[in-house]
Nucleic acid binder design. Structure first.
Lengths: 220, 220
DNA sequence: CCTCCACGATCAACAGGCGCATGGACGAAG
DNA sequence: CTTCGTCCATGCGCCTGTTGATCGTGGAGG
């Protein structure tokens, strides 16, 4: 994990750098706004600690410029509550969090860790089968990167097949997991949904295994 | 954010509940250790305030039992410094923090916020989803840099969605985290608040996923 | 190779449910 | 007393789940 500190107060910058290095981070320090903008723009950092009062270019503008350029690096603003700048103003420019000076060192480390953790928590369970991507969390399905609109039941059926991709899933098992256990209707209902899925996803994904059930395959 | 207070002193419990509700939290109160254990075990709470001297089962055992069951809900112990119990003992049993009675109300709120921030799913106070910035600490929301005035409940609902941005959050889950257990009304209430949020934030942020819930998306 | 049968696919139509919006009741706070 | 936030009830519109009928298809047996 590599951090960039943009802070013109020498003592504060050095003390922060030392502390964060002790936490195991690689830390670079610059003292000028413009310099900070260039460094952060390189894309080599996992997080930027950005002071507001800076020579060259102030922190707000650095942050806003980065965001305008599409740079999404996590930014933790260090604001001084001296009345000149509003503490919440950092929100406007696209910072992910802000700390008001003076702050405790423990709090800073906690925030840094929190931001880094947040960034990396994209462990969403997405099932991939061939050209299909089934996002369980978002309840979305994509084929070749384009979203396919499914209804709740359609999604539920596809989800069952995707959870056991390649295996044959019997209609009884699908009924069991997708429908209420009290359901006593016709098994034909599954055929109806498989049909709808084929229409929306295109043929070739769901293979019929006569007398056994269905199988979701990778083939186009 | 939903909190559980396990405290047998009626006056203290009620005064805490009132104060925390004023901070925008949904608060449930129980007066018995066993009852508290069961409630906390449901997994619907974001934090538990746990007194030590309790009828039914004392706070240490409640805490230890929860932890033994793999429950990781943040626990703030309320210890009475009367010599009988050691204040550090609470930490041994798996509590995340402890407060010694009598404590100031301000300190309590600060600790609660700190714990929620530290242990919460997303530890950073500013949640960004597309053009929206949800500041958990300040309970403020901005869209494209301009503040949007929300009521407490509106904010709480949006906060839940923002905490799991991109994922589908069911109405049941929203109810669980935003409303008290004393609430037994209609699910329609959530639709009312989503409607209000859409009016204030503009359409396109909160997407309805029929039969599943709502999803907060980055798109305009 | 043809026929028949059983299983599966698809379609159209209907009814109920789900979500949305609105107006107003109730209570708390100023 | 007024105002605001919260909550409830109602009606409406559209989507969705389900059904039954009809058509297609694969396999076994003659």
């Amino acid at each position: 994990m590599r951090l960039l500190i943009v802070e013109d107060e020498q003592r504060l910058a050095l003390s922060l750098a030392r502390g964060l290095r002790a936490e195991g981070y690689a830390v670079d320090v610059v003292h000028d706004g413009l310099e900070g903008l260039h460094r952060a723009g390189e894309g080599a950092y996992d997080l930027v600690l950005l002071d507001i009062m800076l020579p060259g270019m102030n922190g707000y503008r650095v942050c806003a410029t980065l965001r305008a350029a599409g740079n999404e690096v996590p930014i933790l603003m260090l604001t001084a509550k001296d009345g000149e700048y509003d503490e919440a103003e950092g929100l406007d420019t696209g910072a992910d969090d802000y700390l008001t000076k003076p702050f405790s060192y423990v709090v800073l480390v906690a925030r840094v860790k929190a931001l880094l953790r947040r960034r990396g928590r994209s462990a969403a369970p997405v099932l991939r089968v061939g050209a299909l991507a089934v996002d369980q969390g978002a309840r979305r399905v994509e084929r070749d990167g384009t979203e396919v609109a499914l209804t709740a039941k359609e999604f539920a059926v596809l989800e069952q097949l995707a959870l056991r991709a390649g295996e044959v899933v019997s209609k009884a098992e699908i009924l069991e997991h997708v429908w209420d256990f009290a359901y006593d209707g016709d098994v034909n209902i599954i055929e109806v949904y498989v049909s709808a899925l084929r229409r929306k996803l295109g043929a070739g994904h769901i293979v019929t295994v006569r007398g056994a059930g269905y199988r979701l395959v990778a083939g186009a």
